[in-house]
Nucleic acid binder design. Structure first.
Lengths: 258, 258
DNA sequence: CTCCCTGCTTCCGACCACCGGAAGCGATCG
DNA sequence: CGATCGCTTCCGGTGGTCGGAAGCAGGGAG
C-alpha cells in the first residue's frame, strides 16, 4: 500500500476483511474504536474503511453510532452453499420430524474438527439451548458430532480422538472408549449422547447420505435432543432415518453429482 | 491505488466489494471470467482480489473452479439484525401458526419499496412458492406488503401507489382503489390478497407492533398463504394476531428501546 | 497426433491512492 | 468551565496496486 504504513506488506483488501472479521457472535454491534482495537489497526484507517463498507451496504450504522452487519451481507450469506443447497432442501424434513415428536431437531455438517449447526427447529424452548444455527460444537460430545466423526477422514478423527475436551462431567474423554463408540456408530448407523455436552439432555442422530459415483457419502447429520428424563429415545431413530433418507434423495436430485 | 489504472478514482475496497456484488440469487456460482464481466473489471485484477477473498474465507472455490460464497460470509450474515433480532425471536411463533394451520407462514419487513421476506415456514409445498427467505416482492400485491405499506411513511406509500406493477390479471393497479384498500387495512388491522401476486393463492397478513417511547411501531408483517379454493381465510386472522402480539412482546423485551 | 481456442495463472515496472499522525470537533462528566 | 473521550477531517510521502503481456493447461476439432 502506501504512506507511512506501520504494518507494511498488508493489503488493503485484507484490512477491509479484518474490519468485517471484528464482528462475531459475541460482538455483533461495535463502535469505531472497538473495531479498531479488535482488528489491531489505527483508528483512522478503520474509520475510512468503515465508510466504504457502510456505503456499499456491507455494514450499517445504528442510531447510536455503532456498526452492525448490513442487509447486503445478509443477502450474500443466503447464497452460501450450506444455505442454498442443504438448508433449503432439509428444512421441510426437519419440520416433519418436529411435528411428529415436538422435540428440538437439528442438522449439522462437519467443518474441520467441529460440528457446524446449519438448521434447527424447536418450538418454545423446553430444553436449554446450546446449539444455534451457525454455532460450532465439538464432534465427540454431541450425537450429530459422533455421526460426523464416524464418517470423517482418518486424520481428522485421529486429531479429535487424541485430545477430546471435557464439556460436562459425563463427556467421554478416554480415547479408547471414544474409538469403540465411533466404531459402534458405524455399525449401528446412529449415535447417541447422554448429558455429554449439556446436562439434562439426551440426544440421538443419524447420518444423511447422498449417492455419489464413488458410493454413498455422509454429507450431514440429523439429530434430535430431548430432556434426560425421557426413556424412549431409541424409538426416535426410525423417524430420523426416514427424514434423513428423504433429505439424501432430494439432495441427490438437486445436485446430480458434486 | 496505483499503476496504469484505467478507472482511476476507484478504491481498492470498492473493487473487492464489486467482486462480492457479482454474486446474486440468479448467479450464486461464478467463474473468474464471469465475475470479471459482471463487475466490469479487468480479469487480472479480479483474479488477484478473488485470491484474497478466498484466502480469508469470504468466498470458496468449488472443485470445478468456480467460486461461491464461503462459510465466513454465511457466518457474518447470521449476525445481521434481521436475523439476530427479528428472525430468532419470531421463528417459534411462525412455527406455532404453522402447526395450528398447516399452511405456509411468513414474516416480512419493509425495505425501501419492497417487502423483504425474512422468515418462512412451509411444509411440503402444497402451494407454489413465490416467496423465499431473502426475496423481495412488491408492497401492493402481497398481503404482508399491504400491511407494511399501510404503515410506511407518506413519501414511500406515495411512490408505490403512483406506479403499481401488474403481477397477475388480478393485481390491483388503480391508485385510487389501492389507496382505499390501504385505508381499510389501517382500519381493520389486517390485509388480504386474492391471486394478486400469484394465481391460485389467497393470503392474509397482520402487522407486528413493538411498543416504542413514541408509541407503537409496525416493524414487520406476519402473513399466511393458502390455496385459493379455501373459503375460511378470515378465520386465520385471530391466529395471526395472537402470534404477532407474541412476537411484538418478545421484541420489546429483547431490545428495550430502538 | 498437432493445432487452435478458451480460460486461468504468473510476472513485473510505473505510478497514484492509501496510510495514519496530528489537529479539530462535539458531547459528556466532574 | 476545563478535562476527557470518541469520532471526523486533513494532507504529504511512498510502497502497494494495476493490468497488459506472456505463459500454461485442458479440451475439442481436424
Amino acid at each position: 500500500m502506501a504512506g507511512r504504513s506501520s504494518t507494511p506488506g498488508r493489503s488493503v483488501t485484507s484490512r477491509a476483511l479484518a474490519v468485517l472479521g471484528a464482528f462475531d457472535t459475541g460482538a455483533p454491534r461495535l463502535s469505531l474504536s472497538e473495531i479498531a482495537e479488535r482488528s489491531a489497526m489505527p483508528l483512522t484507517t478503520v474509520h475510512r474503511l468503515l465508510g466504504e463498507l457502510t456505503d456499499w451496504g456491507a455494514l450499517q450504522r445504528r442510531p447510536d453510532g455503532r456498526y452492525e452487519i448490513g442487509r447486503r451481507l445478509w443477502d450474500l450469506g443466503l447464497l452460501a452453499p450450506v444455505q442454498l443447497e442443504l438448508r433449503q432442501v432439509a428444512a421441510p424434513f426437519l419440520l416433519d420430524v418436529h411435528t411428529a415428536t415436538r422435540d428440538t431437531v437439528h442438522l449439522a455438517v462437519r467443518e474441520g474438527r467441529s460440528a457446524l449447526y446449519v438448521e434447527r427447529v424447536s418450538g418454545r424452548e423446553s430444553v436449554p439451548v446450546v446449539s444455534q444455527v451457525g454455532s460450532r460444537l465439538p464432534l465427540h460430545a454431541t450425537a450429530v458430532g459422533k455421526v460426523l466423526l464416524a464418517a470423517a477422514p482418518e486424520d481428522v478423527a485421529e486429531a479429535v480422538l487424541r485430545a477430546p475436551t471435557r464439556e460436562t462431567r459425563h463427556t467421554i474423554v478416554d480415547p479408547g472408549r471414544l474409538r469403540r463408540e465411533i466404531a459402534e456408530v458405524r455399525r449401528r448407523g446412529y449415535a447417541r449422547t447422554a448429558e455429554e455436552m449439556s446436562l439434562g439432555t439426551l440426544s440421538v442422530a443419524v447420518p444423511v447420505r447422498v449417492e455419489r459415483p464413488a458410493g454413498p457419502a455422509v454429507v450431514a447429520a440429523l439429530g434430535i435432543v430431548v430432556p434426560s428424563h425421557r426413556r424412549d429415545l431409541l424409538r426416535l431413530v426410525p423417524v430420523l432415518e426416514v427424514a434423513a433418507r428423504g433429505i439424501g434423495r432430494e439432495l441427490a436430485r438437486a445436485q446430480p453429482f458434486h
